[in-house]
Design a binder for these strands. Sequence first.
DNA 1: CTGTTAGCGCATTCAA
DNA 2: TTGAATGCGCTAACAG
Lengths: 354, 354
Amino acid sequence: MSGRNPKSGADAFKPRRPVLADVAKRAGVSISLVSIVMRGVPGASPANRERILKVAADLGYVPDARARMLRQERSHLLGVMFGVQQLFHADVVEGIYAAAETTGYEVVLSAVTNARPESRAVDTLLADHCEAVLLIGPQSAKSWLTDLAARLPVVVVARSINAPGVDAVRTAEAKGIGLAVDHLVALGHSRVFHIDGGNAPGADQRRRGFRAAMQRHGLVPVSVSGGLADVDGAEATSRILNGANLPTAILAYNDRCATGVLDTLYRAGVKVPAQISVVGFDDTHLAGLSHIDLTTVRQDASVMARLAVQRAVARLDGPEEQRTPRDSVVPPALVVRGSTSRAPRPEKAWKRRG
Amino acid sequence: MSGRNPKSGADAFKPRRPVLADVAKRAGVSISLVSIVMRGVPGASPANRERILKVAADLGYVPDARARMLRQERSHLLGVMFGVQQLFHADVVEGIYAAAETTGYEVVLSAVTNARPESRAVDTLLADHCEAVLLIGPQSAKSWLTDLAARLPVVVVARSINAPGVDAVRTAEAKGIGLAVDHLVALGHSRVFHIDGGNAPGADQRRRGFRAAMQRHGLVPVSVSGGLADVDGAEATSRILNGANLPTAILAYNDRCATGVLDTLYRAGVKVPAQISVVGFDDTHLAGLSHIDLTTVRQDASVMARLAVQRAVARLDGPEEQRTPRDSVVPPALVVRGSTSRAPRPEKAWKRRG
DNA sequence: CTGTTAGCGCATTCAA
DNA sequence: TTGAATGCGCTAACAG
């Protein structure tokens, strides 16, 4: 009970969090020695090291990231912008953490939500002194990305973008759609519709890829405007069902959109895949659920994440020839599940009721 | 072109990011005036304010969060730990951002992944000087939470915990399970099994709630060990199907687990809900997909998020009587969908094949 | 191996 | 309304 803090009068004040000096005083050494120990760099005797670590633990000392980074020339921080509700983004984020582990960089997350636009998300990343930012599926204008890229290395993941100064890691979207079309054509389908993603990441590439693949097979490509949510897929499907021309297969912009398609077909009493085959994109966890059991084009999130981190680190620390932005294209793969089957014979094809 | 940086010799150096002093020099005013303007506090003439803001924008000045927070007594940061793959957590995170918006606190995210345990996630939050932490569905030991709560306000969301010093915002789990049991009993079910969540958040409460509800109806509660992933639900269902005693309804720990249940039943040729009814928990986006169409117990993520933020802020800034931790219980609601129906007549009940 | 010193960018007294 | 000085907690360079 002796030797307590001899500060004047007041008895109950908020317990300040311990700092380097507190640890030093308690251990009877200098501040810089404690700093050396906390950073794990050589320069302290084993005995002191052990004792200081013990004192620090006792006090509950946690290094102050703010002060540490303020002092250091570099932050070694990678900023990641992602959509908190996006299944595919979650896969990429997980991969980014794993990939960053071995690089000496820390990851800082910034979420995009309904109430939090991309610009806000990135501003906090900048304020935090991230050295590079990885943007997952950004929707912002190209010019905005270009401006951002003038300030620090920007790696765009899962959006096909051709903006100067911006690194991109993307799936070969057109090729992926091509795989899906080839698969359907091999199953005898000829009336294949594409429900596109509107302005969503990669939507344009997928639309083009669809057109090219269909034409390659001598078929007529029909694209219907959709979006990235299930409601978009549902609405588009309703429009299709109300139209004159009916497909035997639907290629949705992504898995989530495809669930909306399945939904609407199911409610309309259309059998999948007997009457209409459905293909998604992404191979999110959703697609594998056996009640959905969706044939889909797989984007490899962990490979994309690894490449994205590699690119960011190369831009920052790599040799000169690695410091310029580039495109990294990851090959997609078709995952065949139960939502596709041989095209129905014309006379057995689905007819509108009533 | 006069008055350029008079630094010696070198011509091409890395473009340092602008700081307060750069803006001040360019605008021909003092640093502190720029500071006043950037913080938006009174003390500058409208003319100056406008000009300074313009210069700052031109230079691409972004306040340095590290330095700002180092200087300030308080960080006004709320740390949020969440599982990046958890659908329900995403809903809560979104709600937390929305709720924090009006409080003057910023949100800092820290993800838990396979390779990143909760302790690491929280350590970064502490290093960042968060004033309080909101932990979504933490799995860590109670003692760890108690220790943490000794350092700063801790709000646990979606886990029923009775740890001293810890705030909790949770659903009335037992009541939710009770609603599900009541629903099933009203449909004539008597052989109801519960696939539990093992050690997962709330699992124990749900198990107890199940037992109590069944006994209230004079029925025998059967609990089977499960978990929070779909594979857990699938495995448990296999065991059930191989057992001697067959249920007419299964209550899964959560929606994700329930999809595993549906999956396995589907593969085994068991019709849902004709032969077995299935109920989930959470009402994640998953449950509403019509191909899953799962009757489930809804946890209101946005209400929970709002309460959690309120509690954190009250602990930090509230009047004295608000500064002690407490439990906030959110009522659940049953969402009836297509995975439940009237119990099959005994003679029509599902029989094992072969 | 250890302690001393300076300064990162900013907010904040206090003077002018 | 403005400007000069101080220090937040820490690291880095140097001196003992």
